[in-house]
């Protein structure tokens, strides 16, 4: 049964529209380990369009984090190129913000100090960023914790600080590596709704790595399904559910169909 929603990735990227922000052109990554070379990614071609929310979903070892790191400019591909607006990515860019599975906060800095860290690294005057930082900290719901230290915050609140740290610098693209994977189910759901609200209203292009299919479908415009050994894209699912989405969206029969579609693409790899 041919599925009209399924776009094979082997479709020519050359035809990608002007809206494309990130393209990967037959990216492969081989890690040389003492046990021998390991192919983490083989011939990956994907396109991310402006304002889209794209998830990379797949089991451990499918190379989804490796791909994200390559796009972030933190890891060079073995062959192929990742492009940002048509230019090869060779190092991190201020147009892209990166979020980790843990908040990665500096324990000796307050919430505000942590949010201002990139300003110092960028050589900006922290005073010039302070107002912006405060309004973003308020927007993520930490108004009363501006002067608090990380150890005084819960895991969810720490991850909000990490979100504020990245959003303060108005990235065009937000790269997230299982950002809420370490949080409990309830906090994760709340964070997902908030993330969607903020990135939608700011028109930020998002790439989101996760192994949670429900989360991927709920958040995304496009779900890139990846399978391991070697890591490759087995298909892309377009999520046409209307926005804004709420928890009720999950009751939609189309939502369940999409989850099964992703599952089918994962095949017997899980």
């Amino acid at each position: 049964m041919p599925n009209p929603k399924l776009q094979l990735v082997e479709a020519p990227v050359a035809g990608a529209s002007d809206r494309s922000v990130i393209n990967t052109r037959s990216i492969s990554k081989i890690f040389s380990l003492p046990e021998g070379p390991v192919t983490a990614l083989r011939d990956v071609n994907i396109t991310v369009s402006k304002g889209d929310f794209v998830s990379f979903v797949g089991p451990s070892g499918c190379g989804k984090s490796t791909l994200l790191n390559i796009i972030a400019g933190l890891l060079p591909p073995t062959s192929g190129t990742a492009e940002l607006y048509g230019e090869a990515i060779t190092s991190p860019s201020r147009r892209m913000g990166f979020m980790f599975q843990t908040a990665v906060l500096l324990p000796w800095r307050t919430v505000e100090g942590n949010v201002l860290l990139p300003a110092e690294v960028y050589g900006m005057d922290p005073k010039a960023v302070r107002d912006k930082a405060r309004s973003v900290i308020e927007a993520v719901g930490l108004k009363d914790f501006i002067k608090a230290y990380p150890k005084q915050l819960s895991g969810g609140m720490q991850q909000r600080v990490a979100l504020a740290r990245v959003l303060t610098y108005e990235p065009e693209i937000l790269l997230m590596d299982e950002p809420f994977g370490a949080l409990d189910e309830f906090t994760r759901e709340a964070m997902n709704l908030e993330l969607m609200r903020i990135t939608q209203s700011a028109g930020i292009t998002c790439i989101f790595v996760t192994h949670n299919i429900t989360e991927a479908v709920f958040l995304s415009d496009k779900v890139v399904v990846m399978t391991p050994r070697p890591g490759k894209v087995s298909g892309v699912v377009d999520v046409t559910l209307p926005r804004p989405r709420e928890i009720e969206t999950m009751k939609d029969p189309a939502f369940a169909d999409l989850i099964f579609e992703v599952r089918n693409l994962l095949g017997r790899h899980i």
Partner: peptide, 10 residues
Amino acid sequence: DARKLMRSLK
């Protein structure tokens, strides 16, 4: 991850 954060900020 802390080093990686700093690298991502160049």
